[in-house]
């Protein structure tokens, strides 16, 4: 029995700033995961990753990570990815300080939004 494909997004860090970004359907890198392209087909995921790997003048370390659909766009499945949409816990730095709404759930941490 073949395993069902878990939807993915392509994510990376921006070359100059180093902040987390996501690949959009129209080939942009967005700091807001809500804009990410949710990829539901494995072959398409590999194509998008190949495209991302050709963008080394813009981003570092592109990879496919699990994501789930939501009415406001893709959300992270794992808490590590949720952190990447938010920033650190100890200071209001990173995306949470840049007007972006944190995405995904961090178990035990009720401050995060979906």
């Amino acid at each position: 029995m073949s395993r069902r494909f878990t939807p993915k997004v392509v994510t990376a860090n921006r070359l100059i700033e180093g902040d987390a970004v996501w690949l959009t359907e129209d080939d942009r890198w967005s700091p807001d995961m809500a804009e990410a392209e949710l990829i539901e087909d494995e072959a398409h995921a590999q194509l998008r990753l190949l495209f991302a790997k050709g963008q080394s003048h813009l981003v570092v370390g592109p990879e496919l990570v699990d994501a789930a659909p939501s009415p406001t766009g893709p959300v992270p499945v794992h808490f590590r990815e949720a952190f990447r949409t938010r920033g650190p816990s100890n200071y209001r730095h990173g995306k949470q300080a840049e007007g972006l709404i944190p995405r995904g759930r961090i178990p035990g941490d009720e401050t995060t939004h979906v």
Binding site: I16, G18, S56, F83
Partner: peptide
């Protein structure tokens, strides 16, 4: 050279690490 595209990340990574520069979750 990294920023102008002459070096790939694979080429640049060991050079930046030799100078203490890591890439972490939210930033360098």
């Amino acid at each position: 050279r990294r920023i102008d595209g002459s070096l790939t990340e694979d080429e640049f990574r060991p050079l930046r690490l030799m100078n203490g520069l890591y890439l972490q979750l939210h930033a360098y």
